[in-house]
């Protein structure tokens, strides 16, 4: 295992974070053997097939985050953005900037407005009739409301919480945006290099190379989500928005996608909404903590997690509320 993979291994992380929670149950399990001490009522026992690994030496604890060079140019800038759904204010005057080469994680409890904020960045909130917006969002210095929405969504792509590949072949899924965005229908041969490139970048090509014409809906959940990522990055967007991309997936797929996010940010600005604090800690360069529509804290991951300025943030990242 590479140090990076070790760091991302969820089972090992759990064992490391809370060794006493697993260890005592092993003891209880041992105490249940006949003739050894008092009878303990049967409890759920966890049998580990191997002992938890020892803590890695400090040098290996470096996160994936630090392995890339610093942030690139600013892509998106939010200026006093507020979003209302009728009388309810979902996002209150949020200002942020998002840079290429960076992963920004939006964290916060449910209903705090982080998904609404994310969907505003490519104007998907406009599809909700009651939503209204104030403030400005600049993409490379242009107000996104002055761009045609189709152009904007070509430049700011999105991956959803539930994998949503279309009921078409794998190839057609990835080629979908390429076909729809080009004026005249390109031939399959012209699209092939771009499709393969996108599948490669999404880390899916090796798994599907012999089955490009197979139905996308037959892939596993994690493969479907990577297909959705490939579909989103195929037209070479500048910003990738991800709305809890791993919450519907198993730990192994989650690990693959987290690794992928780390690689994608080389040439993209990535914004990830997540409920999972450990995930935000693992993948993000910057973290924005939102609470009831307010942006409470915004800073580097280390700063937000280790030295939060606001009490609310300290309580949230410390697990006092969720």
């Amino acid at each position: 295992m590479s140090p990076e993979e070790m760091l991302l291994d969820p089972l090992r992380l759990a064992a490391e974070a809370e060794p006493e929670r697993i260890q005592p149950q092993r003891r209880i399990h041992a105490a249940e053997q006949p003739g050894q001490g008092p009878v303990v009522p049967p409890v759920r026992t966890i049998v580990l097939d191997r002992a938890p690994l020892p803590a890695p030496p400090p040098s290996e604890r470096a996160s994936v985050r630090t392995q890339l060079a610093g942030a690139g140019p600013e892509r998106l800038r939010l200026e006093e953005v507020s979003i209302d759904y009728g009388p309810k204010q979902a996002v209150k005057s949020v200002s942020l900037s998002i840079h290429q080469g960076e992963v920004l994680a939006l964290i916060g409890p449910s209903g705090c407005g982080k998904t609404t904020l994310l969907r505003t960045l490519n104007r998907l909130t406009e599809l909700t009739p009651s939503a209204s917006r104030a403030g400005r969002i600049m993409l490379d210095g242009e107000d996104i409301h002055e761009l045609p929405d189709t152009t904007l969504r070509g430049r700011v792509a999105m991956v959803f919480q539930q994998p949503n590949p279309f009921p078409m072949s794998i190839f057609d899924n990835v080629a979908f945006a390429l076909r729809e965005q080009s004026r005249k229908r390109p031939r399959r041969r012209e699209l092939e290099p771009q499709v393969i490139e996108a599948l490669r970048r999404a880390g899916l090509y090796e798994e599907v190379r012999d089955n490009l014409d197979g139905p996308a809906l037959r892939l596993s959940g994690g493969q479907q989500q990577r297909l959705c990522i490939a579909r989103a990055i195929a037209p070479r967007p500048e910003v990738l928005l991800m709305d809890e991309p791993c919450s519907a997936l198993d730990p192994i797929s989650t690990k693959t996608i987290e690794k992928l996010i780390g690689e994608l940010r080389r040439d993209l600005a990535v914004v990830v909404v997540t409920h999972n604090l450990a995930q935000a800690h693992r993948i993000a360069d910057k973290v924005a903590f939102m609470y009831l529509g307010d942006l409470i804290e915004y800073g580097s991951t280390a700063q937000v997690f280790d030295e939060p300025r606001a009490t609310r943030t300290r309580d949230y990242v410390g697990g006092a509320f969720g």
């Binding site: 969504r153 949503n164 009921p167 078409m168 945006a177 959705c228 989103a232 037209p235």
Partner: peptide, 26 residues
């Protein structure tokens, strides 16, 4: 599923095209 419609719109396809290319197709 609404997710298909929304997914197509999020890929920068105009809504009427999304209806024809994804919803009606399905």
């Amino acid at each position: 599923p609404n997710a298909w419609r929304e997914g197509a719109i999020a890929l920068g396809v105009n809504p009427v095209r999304a209806i024809l290319a994804v919803t009606v197709r399905a």
